[in-house]
Write a protein that binds this DNA or RNA. Sequence first.
DNA 1: TTGAAAGCGCTACCAA
DNA 2: TTGGTAGCGCTTTCAA
Lengths: 339, 339
Amino acid sequence: MKATIYDVAREAGVSIAAVSQVINGKGKISEERRQEIFLVMERLNYKPSLIAAALTGKKTYTLGLLVPDISNPFFAEIAHAVEDQADSLGYSVVICSTHNEDDRLERYLTLLQQKSVDGIIIGTGMDHAELLDPLLEKSIPIVSIARETTSPHVQTVLVGDRLGGQLAGRHLLALGHTRIGIIAEQLKVSSSRERIGGFREALAGSGLELPDARVKASGSDLLRDGKRKALELLQPQSQPERPTALFCCNDLLAIGALQAAKELGLRVPEDVSIVGFDNTILASVTDPPLTTVAQPIEAMGKLAVEVLVGKLNSTSAGPARSVLEPELIIRGSTAAVSE
Amino acid sequence: MKATIYDVAREAGVSIAAVSQVINGKGKISEERRQEIFLVMERLNYKPSLIAAALTGKKTYTLGLLVPDISNPFFAEIAHAVEDQADSLGYSVVICSTHNEDDRLERYLTLLQQKSVDGIIIGTGMDHAELLDPLLEKSIPIVSIARETTSPHVQTVLVGDRLGGQLAGRHLLALGHTRIGIIAEQLKVSSSRERIGGFREALAGSGLELPDARVKASGSDLLRDGKRKALELLQPQSQPERPTALFCCNDLLAIGALQAAKELGLRVPEDVSIVGFDNTILASVTDPPLTTVAQPIEAMGKLAVEVLVGKLNSTSAGPARSVLEPELIIRGSTAAVSE
DNA sequence: TTGAAAGCGCTACCAA
DNA sequence: TTGGTAGCGCTTTCAA
């Protein structure tokens, strides 16, 4: 059915070695033979099997991308950037959504390994050093994106999460907020911990402290949990204690919070200010549009691929960590406290 | 570095054939030998190479998914559903964003073929019968999702686009709108044409006609073009002729329209009603939330994989077309015309 | 039950 | 320049 290198060789009356030469543009082949073979390949609609080539030691030119959930716009945008850059470097990418499940992560890791991907970009926030080691031993390079990893051999590309948290904190502080709540992802996600840390630092700079009771962690259904946690924090009965502002560790959570506020009849930003994180497309379309800390998603995805492919092509180390700048994007969901 | 079947065989003091047997759970192996070999595999951290297995005639258990743009939430959600179902059936998926570029589509198609994917799900709306034929000849099954294809050997899973257009039309009609504008994707996208067709049918049912001048087609930057086209349609100078409602062929376009309305100082839905299509997460977070025609994205993705894998495992035809039901979701962006 | 050996499609080395 | 050939890691007869 499918033409092989043998078919081409036979048709062209040459050896498979010759065909291989023209496929790879290597070796010495007379121009006319080259043309001849080329024509036959066209005619037979022959496409060299990458599988077979890979088996002989060539790369698979495939990268694995692990994310918690590809339908989360943040990761969809990451995936877009990664795929784009990978493609321009000649790689394609296998995308795996782990749903934040550890065993799924492990399964995918094995799978990618069995598929002989050339490298892996991992964007799931978990402590998986043990899981990664076996791959690294088999010299499959791994780059972590948007999350910290505990493994020292994994290079990391992320945004300054701590600084981002600080930016959010200072912004709210500047608007006069002092009673503030935080909604985070699962606390095992390093970026959330960092963002909270930075946020608290900013408050501490003004002598404010943030009681643990005002920090809520969500599960993996971000939108729903963001709403649920916001509901808890903004509970009517806690009126006098009610936070005047909420810092949410990502846009999806922030949108959940927005919905909670609406449901409670609270106006945003008049009654409660809300700050998100990521600056996905979502942040620009909500009502009111979301003040959020932007991650340079495009740049991160691009850089992660570059670092990874760099590792593939050279033994040179490359930067262990690349920390990009977060940026506060002020939109309509935050305002000065009006008490 | 990486353990091979030979390493395992040697360590276990058996032949590679025996190892292969236990990997695949085939043939006859004494239970103790099985255990023994199993242990060695564990110890060496051996993972059979899928590449090598594929070369011997086994499947690659890889599917290709072609979409115009993975960062568009609609396709991100499709991808999520596809990946999920594929995974549960033992397949992984390579995702390719074509950016609506024909040559990129072609390049990816060749690539997937060279990677020996077992099947392809294609969600890019173009007339590419010629591009698909070579793959079909090589018996790589293809399923089209969310879009029509002209190729008779490609099975299709989509929503009733025409009916969806009708639902939108009837809804607007029921609210008393008669001057309506449409913003579509590129007209080569079949689903847009169908939606417009259905919409027009609904109007025609009430004796209304929709002048071509009120139908605008966007480019591939949906958000920006949606806004731009909406701006044209809602232009202040055309005040008396200004449409009181806009039907946008997807949520992203609708959001662009929302932004245009805001920019022109028009209130939605009081001054202009807007209807979207897809019911992505975006539709629920805008302000006002978007009235839109829902596609059963999850079900479509799941079904597409089932149909594709069905083709892989049997010679039975399976349905040539599966048309799922659209559903009108009424939210806050539409209201009765108030003139 | 077990294992020797013939491929799968391609690359790369070596000899001609 | 060319082509023969030995693998790559695994599956699958076919004998033993």
